[in-house]
Amino acid sequence: MKELLTNLYNYRQLLKSNVKKEIRGKYKGSFLGVLWSFVNPLLTALVYAIVFPIILRSAEPNYVTFIVIGILPWTYFTTVIMQGTTTILMNAAIIKKVYFPREILPISINVSGVINFLISCLIIFIFLIFSGIGFSWYLGFLPLVIITQFVLQQGIIFITSAINVYVRDAEYIISFIINMLFYATPILYSASMFEHSALNWIIKLNPMATIMNCYRDILFYQSMPALLELIIVLLVSCVLCYIGFKIFKKLERNFAEEV
């Protein structure tokens, strides 16, 4: 772990420029530029907001805001996991030719993801204002939720990015799992709908469900988030992050030969 921190410090400029490239380079040349990172999830949210009240008949009041609060953190999650998984292969050209601490790559994906998400939080705030829901003091817990999600994602992509170098299927398997996870996470519905269902254990075991519930509690219901559950998820994520880093370091030695 000490190695990680010294590497991060020595190569902080690389991390910074990588994040910059990640955020700005992706949309360079397109008309709306960086705005696309927000337009996309917004349009998705809009589609759900139109379709679901028709299917479900009885939707929550302020369903659009409800959906937006779910979709934006979820977009952050999927973008980071998918881009993180492929990042080593994407950067094969540099990995073969230059030495630098490889963990910079998955970390910069996560950092650029969180920056995008923080900006998109503004959209959530706009929705909260215009729907008349407003804000509460529970907003103070928001950073803790975001940190938990960050650590969880970092742990996952340390592992998946390294494995994807050796088994190229990982990318497709993970994209499938994420698709499934979308339905096992209370994004389109609220967790309470599953309370008496036999499938409730899936939601209980899904760390993203806990995180999502906390976002909802803080922003939408304006109530106390389930702190104990959140802290358990945070601790588990820290352990995952530690193990993930060890795995990454172990597999890293052969990256240049395998990519």
């Binding site: 020595n10 690389l14 420029s17 230059v98 630098f100």
Partner: peptide
């Protein structure tokens, strides 16, 4: 800046 940062230089 990108290239030099790969070599570990600071801003």
């Amino acid at each position: 800046y990108f290239n030099a940062s790969i070599f570990g230089l600071t801003a």
